[in-house]
């Protein structure tokens, strides 16, 4: 099992008191498997994704990725997981604005110490970024920037790819193209893909679907 999350709970302090975002979520994913996570706004989708990505820690429960419970790791340990095991595609792309596209694509792979120039080149070609490599992020359209974000995530060949509404900022056609490429690449690398989305059409292209309602799997 690539990912096994059990009884994951998370709450936040708000002005109105504690707000339980996740109330004991279980989730499992194998290598090469794709899973769509859907739900209403505020249902805890993104929070769950952040916990699995090691960006935040659960209040309770365990999240085992490739045999390691990342909920038990310290900050440095979770940073290592983010570098080497998990790749996250953010809705807002989160590219580094001050470096060129080719360096953005190579960035995470270099951090992980697994930079493969040929693979990075292949990703750029497959994602239609070859002509954009020497540009800066601000010079690209939103769709192009999202492709760069995908290339950056896949460059170190992560075991698990997490995508947080990756097409939320894109028009329908561009979104369809980007998702097709992402699915193809995930399939080739045999990574697991967990995607948070509002789109029913997009969710329909995943192998499995889970629906989150008020912090619990429906």
């Amino acid at each position: 099992m690539l990912l096994a999350a059990r009884n994951v709970q998370k709450k936040f302090d708000t002005a109105d008191g504690e707000f339980h975002v996740l109330r004991g979520v279980d989730i499992a994913l194998d290598s090469g498997e794709t899973l769509a996570l859907t739900g209403e706004s505020g249902s805890g989708k993104s929070t769950l994704l952040h916990l699995i990505g090691g960006l935040d820690v659960p209040d309770q429960g365990e999240i085992v990725i490739d045999g390691t419970d990342i909920a038990a790791l310290d900050d440095n340990g979770r940073a290592a997981v983010r570098r080497g095991v998990v790749g996250v595609v953010f809705q807002q792309f989160n590219l580094i604005p001050s470096i060129r596209i080719k360096d953005n694509i190579a960035f995470q792979a270099r951090l992980a110490g697994r930079y493969d120039e040929a693979w990075a080149r292949t990703l750029a070609e497959r994602l239609g970024l070859v002509d954009q490599l020497n540009k800066y992020p601000e010079q690209l359209s939103g769709g192009q920037q999202q492709r760069v974000a995908i290339a950056r995530t896949l460059a170190p060949r992560p075991r698990l790819v997490l995508a947080d509404e990756p097409t939320g900022n894109l028009d329908e056609d561009t979104a369809a193209t980007v998702i097709s490429i992402l699915l193809a690449l995930v399939d080739e690398t045999q990574a697991g893909l967990l995607m948070v989305t509002h789109s029913t059409a997009l969710a329909g292209r995943m192998a499995r679907r889970m629906h989150l309602r008020v912090g619990q799997i429906a």
Binding site: A79, R82, P97, F107, L111
Partner: peptide, 15 residues
């Protein structure tokens, strides 16, 4: 701030 957040999200340790 945004860059720092991205760097951390990509696995750069805070220290």
């Amino acid at each position: 701030r945004g860059t720092v957040r991205t760097l951390r999200a990509l696995g750069v340790p805070l220290r």
